[in-house]
Design a binder for these strands. Structure first.
Lengths: 151, 151
DNA sequence: TTGGTTGCAAACTTTTTGCAAGCGT
DNA sequence: ACGCTTGCAAAAAGTTTGCAACCAA
């Protein structure tokens, strides 16, 4: 499959520093690894655990893969990052500092596009009205073909 | 996570036998394994490769896991089965003999619900009109909370 | 007979886990 | 000092691959 490129460069708001307080409030500790991993995700926009690890290790080579997995879980619990499944393989994590969005993935060129959740409101409304189902659109990935590849 | 139960028992149309011809037409061969694996998916409704293997092995213990993976790929190529990601782990395969549908997965109780693709037409239309993106709704899984678990 | 298929074993990729040492608070 | 965290190594889970024997056509 072609390499994924992203149409929505992550122009994220800088971490306010108040997440560190929330982290402690939940009984977690603030460690260099956690700051590095969160920063990596904000740098990379969308990244798999593997890519996060590589990015972090460019500066601090001693950081371990298990730490990345464990930290990603903590950061997701804190609501600082989210993940989606952009391929049949590893999940992709992204920062939540911006607006909530879901993803479109083109099977032709591999391009990933971020779309505002509003665009799916018709679906979420119907699911809620007709089935009482509260959808988590931020986790959604819609596969298909982009305009160029659909032809 | 709770075990998934399914609200849409697969009442699939019996294989007409004409898939065997299509299979040969594409240069594939008709083998007992392929018939068993397709039958397993129609029996099970929704199943991971692992579950398919276990089901097939109840009758023919010699069937191998690689054969299941390879066959699932062939069957999907023929359009006889499809897969969706109902968990962060193994993919789930289902028969395409019925109507096309996408899935709802409840994070509370794990329940999986099949929903007719029509219900998502508002989303697919907007994606097509505004972005030219042709969505493959049959592959979609929407995570969230069912009416009971949403409270 | 020909070449697509299968079973087997080994390799691989991604993620999880046990544990002792380390460090944030 | 207490106990959450980390690095490491091994295990687990899921999938893929090379290859010789096998069998559908």
């Amino acid at each position: 499959m072609p390499e994924a490129e992203h149409t929505h460069p992550n122009v994220t708001a800088p971490a306010t520093g108040d997440w560190r307080a929330e982290l402690r409030a939940k009984g977690y500790r603030l460690t260099p690894q956690r700051e590095l991993i969160l920063a990596a995700i904000e740098d990379l926009g969308h990244a798999t655990p593997d890519e996060v690890l590589a990015h972090v290790q460019e500066r601090v080579s001693s950081v371990n893969a298990s730490t990345v997995y464990r930290t990603l879980e903590v950061l997701e619990d804190l609501g600082l990052v989210r993940h989606a499944h952009l391929s049949d393989r590893a999940p992709t994590y992204h920062s939540v500092s911006g607006h909530e969005h879901f993803h479109l993935k083109c099977r032709g060129c591999g391009q990933v596009t971020s779309v505002d959740v509003d665009l799916a409101s018709a679906l979420t409304d119907r699911l809620a009205d007709e089935l009482g189902f509260v959808a988590d659109i931020g986790h959604l990935t819609v596969f298909g073909r982009c305009s160029r590849c659909a032809g």
